[in-house]
Design a protein around this nucleic acid. Sequence first.
DNA 1: CTGTTAGCGCGTTCAG
DNA 2: CTGAACGCGCTAACAG
Lengths: 337, 337
Amino acid sequence: MVTIKDVAKLSGVSIKTVSRVVNNLAEVSPETRQKVQQAILELGYQPNTTARNLVAGKTNTVGVIIPHSADYIFTHPFFTQVLQGIAEVLSANNFNLLLHLAQNEAPYARLYSQRKVDGLILMSIPIGDPNIHGLEENGVPYVCTCRISETNNSTSWVDADFAGGVEQAMEHLISLRHRRIALLAGPMSLVSVRLRVLGYHNSLRKHGLPVADGYILEGDFTSESGYALATKIMKAPNPPSALICGDDMMAFGAIQALKELGYGVPEDVSVIGFDDISLARFSSPALTTIRQDTYAKGRMAAEALLAFMRDKHNAPPRQIMLETSLITRNSTASAKN
Amino acid sequence: MVTIKDVAKLSGVSIKTVSRVVNNLAEVSPETRQKVQQAILELGYQPNTTARNLVAGKTNTVGVIIPHSADYIFTHPFFTQVLQGIAEVLSANNFNLLLHLAQNEAPYARLYSQRKVDGLILMSIPIGDPNIHGLEENGVPYVCTCRISETNNSTSWVDADFAGGVEQAMEHLISLRHRRIALLAGPMSLVSVRLRVLGYHNSLRKHGLPVADGYILEGDFTSESGYALATKIMKAPNPPSALICGDDMMAFGAIQALKELGYGVPEDVSVIGFDDISLARFSSPALTTIRQDTYAKGRMAAEALLAFMRDKHNAPPRQIMLETSLITRNSTASAKN
DNA sequence: CTGTTAGCGCGTTCAG
DNA sequence: CTGAACGCGCTAACAG
């Protein structure tokens, strides 16, 4: 490869001078600058990023960690939307994006200790994930797009108000005179799912409604699990008149199951999703759902991380809660009785 | 940061010996090995990747280039599925994935010249993209998941048989006695779109059908453009009885437009999509579509690239054509007249 | 304004 | 089996 030395030799100056013109460090006479630039063009010289990084002690790259299978991630519009926000901000700030689909056991902090990244964005971390250890001890700059524990702590995160979101869904259904409302939740290993359950209970309590047996089911955010859980709950003794789903994919599966069981949606059973992915309006019926701004989540997380990396001290740990909103479409209607 | 020197000092050996145990280079006595490992643990030493890369002259990372906005990419399941395949293969081979959303003008080869990556995967490159220059000259290992020119050349690529796919769609519609079939195509700047048009013409010719005026419309692979194009063609003097869409998103938009215009799908107008994204079966009616195995596309591209990087000489430029298949669902039916 | 020298952290000759 | 010395390509002090 052509190095700074080659350029120096060809233009008849020292490597330091070459370095100066490459980095625009002024103090170079116009003629020598000219000579050097000529040589650079002639040789097609490009500075070696690895060498620069070694000297500078940084990488200009941010690692995005998602501890799930590529299959799971890329079939969920949720992840890709957050990624979009992150990618845009990083790109605008000349940072590289290293996508790390953690599967095997290896502390996330290692990416930083090994100087592969300057900072980390952690997505969808399950409770008790052993790999999060060492983040603080190693001084790793990081931001989560989720919460990693139900109790308060000092991690910085950007996340939606899941409890509030489910409460919005509940208010909507209760105002439509539904009383038997089931929650087809996602995996309980996620704080966001537990918060949805919390919101569900809050609403029931507020309206003096009973907690029905078996009305909280655990799925995994796939349409298949939505299908399976809807089938199960509708075949049970006391079927609900409305379903709140953990995400839109589950809602799609649930609607499919309901149709196959002969229930009309929304005439017989109302269904509400969560996220408002772009395809929610194309389902049949168009899906009523709780919208969370996943794109903003990604952007804000990336911005918070960059701010933190720029100035560790003046950027206090930030915890940002994003509001959700109810998008009313055609999958919900008044309860029959 | 703790370096190899610190470990050497603590364990009372030379840095070379530390290097040997870190890299498992045998020839170390059990006792010293033990001592060194102890010191490594004690200090929490992690080898600096940047320094290693500088010496080794490689980065162990592959750049994935997609010259579109993050918005465009992440709202199209097509891209994320290819990415999934790539991510899995790279991860399994201990390669990092650098996601590069090229927007501004900068030769892709530069990522290699600057030693940011060891190789490149190029996705969805438009015809005449100036940034592809320099790939060959700089000896960049690369593979495309698309074709970058209509004429034969020596680039290595993995791509679907778009002409054949559209021909499958045409055969299906013609067998249902459709004669007025419009093509709502994607952007003509893509070879894949031109190949779809080619397949369309091939079928027309084969069956002796006329090329109707204005039956090929150019869109951009978004549901919005599917909506707009379907509205336009149906309001034109001689509306078609069937629509073949450039991708499933366009098909969703087209179906929405048809419904709003009072056309029944598939009773009045048949619609066929392209890709078979996971949500195709949840639309209403469930979408008949041409399936391309985007996941396999990603995997094969990554594998081809890795093989090429391992052995430039014994890995001939590969050009792999992936077959498509017709998935018949409920958006197509016999023509009325 | 410019060049010499010394490192960044690691691997790799080559001696011992 | 082990260590000293050099170099990867570049930037930063420090002179000149």
